[in-house]
Amino acid sequence: MNPSLFSRQIAALRHFAAVLLRRPQSALGTALVCFFLFLALFGAGLAPYPNPNDQSHAVRVSPTLDIGALRLGEHPFGTDRLGRDVYSRVILGARSIFRIAGLGALISVIVGSALGLYMGYRGGWFDELLGRVIDALLAIPALVLALVLVGIIRNLDFEIGSWQAELADNVVLLVIAVLYVPVVARVARSSALDIKTREFVEAAEIRGEPTTYIIFREILPSVIPALVVEASLRFSYAIFLVASLGFLGFGARPPSPDWGLMVNENRGGFYQLTPWALDFPALAIAILVIAVNLMSDGIRRAVQKGN
C-alpha cells in the first residue's frame, strides 16, 4: 500500500478516536464495551471456576461481594440453587453474547452492503423488485420473525455431526445476519444512489472499468462512514435481540451460562430463593446494552463531525 495513503488513514482513525472519546458519555460507553469484550476474550482465565456447571459448592450462598471493603470473597455473586458460582457464570456468559451478536452483525453488514451497493448502482428492475421484497420483510417485526425462524430450525432433526446440525447450532447467529441484511441493504442503497452520480464514478465508467471495480473501489470508500454507523447500530440491536431470545428460551440451551437464559431460569418462585442469581446477569445485560448504545451514539456523532 502507498505509505502516504496509509499514514493518512491512520491519522483519520486517530482523529475519529479522539472525537469519540472527547464526549464523556461516549468514552464511558466505549470503555465499558471494551471491558466486556475483554471478559469475552479472556473470561475463561479470569473466572474462579472455569467450568460454568461446576456444582461442587454449597447451594444458595448469598453474595460475598463487599464493595466497601473491596473484597470479593469465595462467591462474590453467590451460588444458585444448583450450587453453581454465579460470578463465574456471568464472566463466562460474555463470550456467547459477543460472538453471536458481533458475528451476526458483521455478516449482515458485509452481505447487506454488497447487496445494497449493487442495487443502488445498478438500479432498474433488479433494484425495484428487491426493494419491494425488503419492504415486505421489514413489515414483519424483527423479534417475531426471529422467534419463528429459530423455533422452526431448532426443532428439525438433523444427524448429529452433519453440517446441517452445525448450522442449526448457530441458528441465532444466522437468523440475526438474515434479519439485518435488508436493513443494511437499504442504507447502503441510498448512499450508493447519492454517490453514483459523482464525476469520479462517471470517469471510471468511461474508462470502461468493470461493475465490481466501480462498486468496491469507487463507491465503497465514500460510503464507509455511513456503513460504520450502521454497523455499530446493528451491533447494539443484535445484543438486545440475543439477550431477548435467550430470555425467551430461544437462544442458548441450558445449562449454558447465557445471561438471558440465567435470568429466565431464576425468575418467578426461584427469585425468592436466590434473587442474586437473577439480579447479576440482568445487571450485566443492562450495563452492556446501555454501554453499546452510548458507544454507537458516540460513533454516529463522531462520523457526522468528521464529514
Binding site: 438486545f240 439477550a243 431477548s244 440482568a282 446494552v289 446501555i290 448504545n293
Partner: peptide
C-alpha cells in the same frame, strides 16, 4: 430516556415485578 430505551423489555419487566 436514553438509558431506559436501551434496556430490554424483560429487564424492565422483571424490575417492575421483583
Amino acid at each position: 430516556t436514553l438509558s431506559v430505551v436501551s434496556l430490554p423489555e424483560f429487564v424492565t419487566g422483571l424490575f417492575l415485578i421483583n
